[in-house]
Design a protein around this nucleic acid. Structure first.
Lengths: 201, 201
DNA sequence: TTAACTAAGTTAACACCTATAACATTAGAG
DNA sequence: CTCTAATGTTATAGGTGTTAACTTAGTTAA
């Protein structure tokens, strides 16, 4: 039976929401069970009825982050002419980086390997995989229609993902101060991967 | 006058070394001042005579990390035919990723934006810049000899850095299980950026 | 030489944290 | 209407960064 929380209403959802709020405004290190409990008006150990430990709560935040990312990517693709693979690839890359810029603390949590060890939270890995699949399908389609080179798909996806992930992290951490160089830096970076960096092309 | 620590000998250096050891074996979250002090046989507050706070100690570790990275990149370049820009670019990229794979926890500390906020430790920013410069010079040279496209240098370096940084992070965090696809995945990824992803080249 | 100063260590304590144990309350099932 | 299990409580153990107050020992100057 689905149990509606009786005393408080819905502590798990509220805890999730408050934790997300703290994450967005103050970063993951500021997320403490005590702080969350105080915001809701409940004792800290009460949270242990709904979360195994602090890390599990963080994992849930990361899971919703990956779902948000997946939805953003899908959404962007739906607004783009699917018959133009270059356009689709550019836009999924731009949407990816835009997500990281909009949710820097959430993005860091999702990919901060030291916080959430890979393998410890199967649902998290699954959520990450689903977001990755959107990118993978776009690349695969680009190959199918003959726009992208017919190299092994894992190589192509690893390259594309590395580029957008690296650009996202360097951007939100402020390592790329020369970001005002292009119409957008991201567009130039993505174009460079598509067209190549060599001069003879 | 340079004061030689009298009581213990050289607490700062030993603290640095022990912290680095803990970082390498157990990750940054395991670095506590009490743990370091216990290893050395000194009280925890004694460390505050040499480090403003925990974060400053971590910043020092990251600084040595960037110096190690810079040296690795320079070293690799010195072993490579400078007249062959493609070779140089490939090898600096491979050396970069290899460093991250050799020192995953140190690498995460160096680039974990939430641990060490940009701007709070000027010497850290400077050390990062010096490592970046090695990459920048290699790219710039590739342009000068006409091998790379004459696009704005910040765009070229941002692209190259994003790719190797992203690949490094995704690799050490275990997000690329299909890494056994190539002679090396890194080589394939770098080649793709140089030659482009489009099929008509 | 010795007194004063200062660098570098000590213990004690505060505030905060995760997490567990033991106890209290109440919703809902039989 | 009772009983059980879910959900909350307080108390507490053990860990953390950090500061205050005190002690020790090396350096410097009278």
């Amino acid at each position: 039976m689905p149990r509606l929380a009786y005393h408080h209403g819905d502590l798990p959802q509220q805890a999730h929401q408050q934790a997300l709020d703290i994450l967005r405004t103050q970063g993951d290190t500021a997320i403490s069970l005590r702080a969350i409990a105080k915001r809701i008006g409940v004792s800290a150990p009460a949270l242990y009825r709904h979360f195994a430990d602090r890390e599990s709560l963080l994992a849930e935040l990361a899971i919703t982050g990956f779902r948000l990312l997946r939805d953003r990517l899908r959404n962007r693709l739906s607004q783009v002419d699917q018959a133009d693979p270059r356009h689709a690839l550019l836009h999924i890359g731009l949407a990816y980086v835009a997500f990281a810029e909009d949710e820097p603390n959430l993005y860091r949590l999702m990919f901060g390997g030291r916080i959430l060890p890979k393998g410890a939270h199967p649902q998290l890995d699954e959520a990450g995989l689903q977001a990755f699949r959107v990118l993978e399908e776009t690349v695969e389609n680009g190959q199918r229609v003959g726009y992208l080179k017919p190299l092994p798909l894992p190589l192509m996806t690893a390259t594309a993902w590395s580029l957008v992930h690296g650009l996202s992290e360097l951007t939100i951490d402020g390592h790329l101060p020369g970001a005002d160089i292009e119409p957008t830096l991201a567009e130039g970076v993505l174009t460079l991967l598509l067209d190549g960096s060599r001069n003879d092309q």
